[in-house]
Design a protein around this nucleic acid. Sequence first.
DNA 1: GGAATACGATACGCATCGTCTCGTAATTAC
DNA 2: GTAATTACGAGACGATGCGTATCGTATTCC
Lengths: 195, 195
Amino acid sequence: MAARRGPKRSEAARLAILEAAAAELSSHGYEGVRMEAIAARAGVGKQTVYRWWPSKGAVIADCLAEGMIPPLAYAPSDTGDVIADITRWVEEAIALIDDDGRRGLMRGLLAAALESPAVAQAEAVSSPVADLRARFAAAQEAGQLRPDADIDTLAVAINGCLVLRVLEPGPSQPDAAQRIVRTLLPGAQPEAAST
Amino acid sequence: MAARRGPKRSEAARLAILEAAAAELSSHGYEGVRMEAIAARAGVGKQTVYRWWPSKGAVIADCLAEGMIPPLAYAPSDTGDVIADITRWVEEAIALIDDDGRRGLMRGLLAAALESPAVAQAEAVSSPVADLRARFAAAQEAGQLRPDADIDTLAVAINGCLVLRVLEPGPSQPDAAQRIVRTLLPGAQPEAAST
DNA sequence: GGAATACGATACGCATCGTCTCGTAATTAC
DNA sequence: GTAATTACGAGACGATGCGTATCGTATTCC
């Protein structure tokens, strides 16, 4: 291994490219992202993009892996009341989806996951599922969910409802979050009511 | 209204184009569909495609509307036992998704729904939801589901689970369908009350 | 028989992709 | 300090695909 001589990879350029890609994805959708637009917005030569990423899908996949896309960073809180926690989490998620500014970002995210397996495996879609499952596991230990409840399937079902909301046009119904939680977690016991 | 003179639109060409588009979508994915490939496979001039459809997304949207994509054509049967009917329907849907041959088609379908609002509104994604809801409504009338069950949300949740299966790589677990039904329809009463 | 129109074929302009090649600046080896 | 090496911004380049325009031909109605 010959010792490396010459300048190192510019971290500033790398971050600028990822931020630019997320911005372009948000405003133009997955198909509308242009590599030259990413480079221009990042103040970078196009070759600098291609030097480190092989394709458009790879850049966007890296955006997710680096947490450039905020909606995915949230996890349900744990106040002890699983119903309240999940309801609030779903409400916030639906608010994000209904926000026209973020809607394009969410759609682009799904499109990227479809085109590039790397994105899907980068836990782009499945990380909310893991967050939900973790919260359900805690509720199960606290006795708020039946021990035989299938928390994996519950987490997938809730996330699936949200993904469908991204797919379908138009705004959600005002009580969508409550209806989802009430339908999918009917057996949950409020903390104070037990014993 | 001047009387129409000249040849009529060729139904053979129209069907050939839709079939070719579905085949290309299946084998190359949404982004990989080439208009010239559709025309060539259909044995048609490219202009004949553009004469009747404005864009790639429109052709694929029409594939769905015309039922060229078989996985969407099914609706749950009604044998009187809602659990059995839905379980079988979900099992068949998962089998389709797990089939490598059809997986590309399902992914292309979702990608098309994301890129083109026309596709999403052509009930591509929501038509299974409607089918499920109809079956649930019948079960509700038959007393197999509680009268206050939120059948809209149930239908969305089941369809959402399936959509996530399309998004994520790898095969499903063998008992995935049973787990989904058991988790989402825990209160349903079997018709014959047979143990 | 004549006019209108859809057809298959193909040529064209345009946009974007991804590669290649500059000159420049940064970093390390010696 | 100097030279070698390498990432950088900038932009030219060919390849590819989109959507339009224009043929001659075949079909259908007046």
